[in-house]
């Protein structure tokens, strides 16, 4: 089930000492992390820690001032976003960012924009509808008029339409009712089981650590802690800060 040119042994994504600035704001102060093939890796941390900035840097939206981002063994730092997507990284961004005046179907189509193999397109659309039957009922509806939960499903579906070799998810459970949160996490596990490595940013640290293999904890632009998810889950500091205990 492994994908990519670097073979089963090398990590799919390697980030080393990445610094990102917003004007004068030093948002990422030397981030290093890895996602191995077949892994679910979670990135947790307080608001403003730099989680979204990290995903945006991987996607080419924020250009690092320093450091290196390697995907399947190749340097992608400074590559424009559209080329990075074509290379196989897709993202379901924070706040969903659907195209509000396009239908669900058109949004899903946009997810497959850079793909050359149009023949598998219908099949992939079916796969997304299987994961989220609700979207199938709503497929003609303008995305901007759907409920928050439905929009979130559409955003994840759209990211899957790219047939990514690495899936970036930024707070996929945000603002969702508990049953939908369950559904989203099941979907993440299912997608990963089918062979796609996932880098998952979550506020819901407990559930994220439940499904992830490994985790990183960010604090104000730095990685404060890292390790196997099972270990982070019992870590005192993590429990006190992110799991609402202590």
């Amino acid at each position: 089930m492994s994908t990519g040119a670097s073979g089963p042994s090398g990590p799919v994504l390697e980030i080393a000492d990445v610094h990102v600035y917003y004007g004068a704001i030093h948002a990422l102060k030397g981030i290093s992390l890895e996602v191995g093939s077949g892994e679910i890796v979670t990135l947790i941390g307080a608001n403003g820690a730099g989680k979204s900035t990290t995903l945006r840097a991987i996607n080419g939206l924020n250009r690092p001032r320093q450091g290196s981002i390697r995907f399947q063994g190749q340097e992608i730092t400074g590559t424009p976003p559209h080329a990075i997507v074509k290379g196989g990284i897709s993202q379901s961004p924070e706040g969903r960012r659907l195209f509000p005046r396009m239908s669900v179907t058109e949004n899903l189509e946009m997810g497959a924009f850079q793909r050359d193999d149009k023949q598998n397109f219908a099949e992939d659309m079916e796969r997304v509808f299987e994961l989220f039957p609700r979207l199938k009922e709503r497929r003609m509806q303008k995305a901007g008029t759907m409920s928050g939960g439905e929009q979130q499903m559409c955003a994840i579906g759209r990211a899957l339409m790219a047939r990514p070799k690495l899936l970036l998810l930024d707070e996929p459970s945000m603002g969702l009712a508990p049953i939908f949160v369950e559904r989203i996490f099941e979907t993440i596990v299912e997608v990963n089981r089918q062979g796609t490595p996932v880098l998952l940013v979550e506020q819901n640290a407990l559930m994220a650590l439940d499904v992830a293999n490994r985790g990183y904890v960010m604090e104000t632009g730095r990685i404060a802690l890292e390790g196997p998810a099972a270990e982070l889950k019992v870590n005192e500091r993590v429990r006190a800060t992110y799991l609402g205990e202590g």
């Binding site: 939206l61 559209h82 897709s90 961004p93 960012r97 659907l98 005046r101 946009m110 850079q114």
Partner: peptide
């Protein structure tokens, strides 16, 4: 057309369009 849909996507959300692999 593909290019036309890309235009609509960029018009509605430029950054999201870039995230979909559209060359803005």
């Amino acid at each position: 057309t593909r290019q036309g849909k890309g235009m609509r996507a960029v018009a509605q959300d430029t950054e999201a369009a870039a995230m979909m692999g559209i060359d803005v």
